[in-house]
Amino acid sequence: MPYLTAQEVDSVFVRVYVQPRASRNAICGIHDGSLKVAITTPPVDGKANQAVIKFLAKTVATPKRDVALYSGKTSRRKVFLITGRTLEEIRGYIEPILKS
């Protein structure tokens, strides 16, 4: 998948396109090669970034401390680094959501 890139054995980059101020937190599909994530939080003082971290951690069943913003602090296009999970594990959590 274009939005997932394996970094090391248990580290994966996830390219995300963030839609802030949405009506609910959800994975909305693929947008321009990135995983489109809708977040209810407005993009003020990094709160939307923290909301995406919390949402991704819950989605892939990993602690928040294992999800970090790698690039795109003030952009809608961001890259998050998830450690402690393999590419296949993360794909296993996200693909069923995309297919539904």
Rank of each mutant, 00 (worst) to 15 (best):
32 D>F: 02
38 A>V: 05
6 A>W: 00
7 Q>L: 12
10 D>L: 02
9 V>E: 12
22 A>K: 11
7 Q>A: 04
15 R>K: 15
30 I>P: 04
13 F>V: 08
6 A>R: 07
20 P>K: 06
6 A>E: 09
11 S>E: 12
11 S>D: 06
8 E>I: 06
13 F>H: 08
16 V>Y: 04
24 R>M: 14
31 H>D: 12
10 D>I: 03
18 V>A: 05
38 A>I: 06
18 V>R: 07
35 L>N: 14
24 R>D: 14
24 R>S: 15
33 G>C: 05
27 I>C: 02
17 Y>I: 03
24 R>E: 15
5 T>E: 07
11 S>L: 06
8 E>Y: 02
13 F>M: 10
16 V>D: 08
19 Q>A: 11
27 I>R: 02
10 D>N: 04
20 P>I: 01
24 R>V: 15
14 V>P: 03
4 L>C: 03
4 L>M: 03
24 R>G: 12
14 V>W: 07
6 A>D: 02
22 A>P: 06
26 A>I: 06
21 R>E: 15
19 Q>S: 12
21 R>H: 13
33 G>E: 10
22 A>W: 05
24 R>H: 13
15 R>D: 14
11 S>V: 06
29 G>I: 11
29 G>Q: 05
38 A>W: 04
23 S>G: 15
31 H>V: 04
32 D>Y: 01
10 D>F: 00
36 K>G: 01
36 K>P: 00
7 Q>S: 06
22 A>V: 11
38 A>F: 03
26 A>G: 06
38 A>R: 03
20 P>Y: 01
11 S>T: 12
29 G>H: 05
7 Q>F: 02
15 R>W: 06
34 S>G: 08
33 G>V: 05
25 N>P: 02
36 K>A: 08
17 Y>E: 12
31 H>L: 07
